[in-house]
Design a protein around this nucleic acid. Structure first.
Lengths: 140, 140
DNA sequence: CCGAATCCGCAAGGATACTG
DNA sequence: CAGTATCCTTGCGGATTCGG
């Protein structure tokens, strides 16, 4: 019981990821709604190495279906992250490449990958510890 | 602007978000599977401002249900990103705070938020252009 | 106040078949 | 090759109720 806990504000906005000290849902939801899905980031990663054609992408991204690749790449195109170019050859030939905006995203993705690799062991260890301490508890 | 498109493949691996030049699915899937869900990042954001109790989190994060807050916070705890402390008062009182690992994530989240804000207008514009050029096409 | 447990709708995503 | 169309399963997540 600590009724005098005061407000937690304490002017401690130094670590606030948002620009504001209060809690607007920032633009974070936007990014996540855009590339937080199952495949978008992987497409961006693949395209970061250079332009790719449809089948190339599908082969490179393990487990993706044509349907999901189509949807994913269409959404990225719509948001202006990917440029889609159709060559009127026969059979049809299409290539995808990152736009300037899309390329700017790759730096973030790299940072994410770096973070993941840097903490994967610690996280795995934390999981084992948790699961060990909560034998019967099912969380996932 | 892209007057001289040049080859993005200047030696190939310079922009590769992964550590490797080839295409392993890096650790990106790991991060996204962990915090790519609907609420995790928002919880991290809120906790970045300091420790919070359950109800505080729920009130701060607009629209989240107790169920989702519980699940989210439990997963974060399991992964060692959040520390959960129970005070044996009555009624029960619990607070959540970021661990070192969790705090290290906030920097990434901030970068994400920054990117989002910096590109939101361009992306919105790209969308309008796309939707304008594809009137009847339904992508979302 | 802090949850766990249950029910349930809905949308994401996989599999398959077909077209240009 | 590069998609489109259709069906169908899975599980996320919301609403509600009950317990400590």
């Amino acid at each position: 019981m600590s009724p005098t806990h005061t407000e937690v504000t304490t002017g401690a906005a130094d670590l606030d990821p948002c620009g504001r000290a209060d809690h607007p849902d920032c633009g974070i939801r936007d990014v996540l709604d855009r590339v937080g899905d199952k495949w978008s980031v992987l497409v961006v990663v693949e395209l970061a190495s250079g332009p790719r054609r449809f089948r190339q992408l599908q082969r490179a991204i393990d487990g993706i279906s044509q349907r999901m690749l189509t949807l994913t790449v269409r959404r990225l195109e719509r948001d202006g992250l990917v440029l889609r170019t159709v060559y009127p050859t026969v059979p049809a030939q299409v290539d995808y490449r990152l736009t300037e905006t899309g390329t700017s995203l790759t730096h973030l993705v790299k940072a994410l990958a770096d973070w993941s690799l840097a903490h994967r062991d610690i996280i795995a260890q934390a999981r084992r510890a948790y699961d060990n301490g909560h034998p019967d508890h099912e969380i996932r």
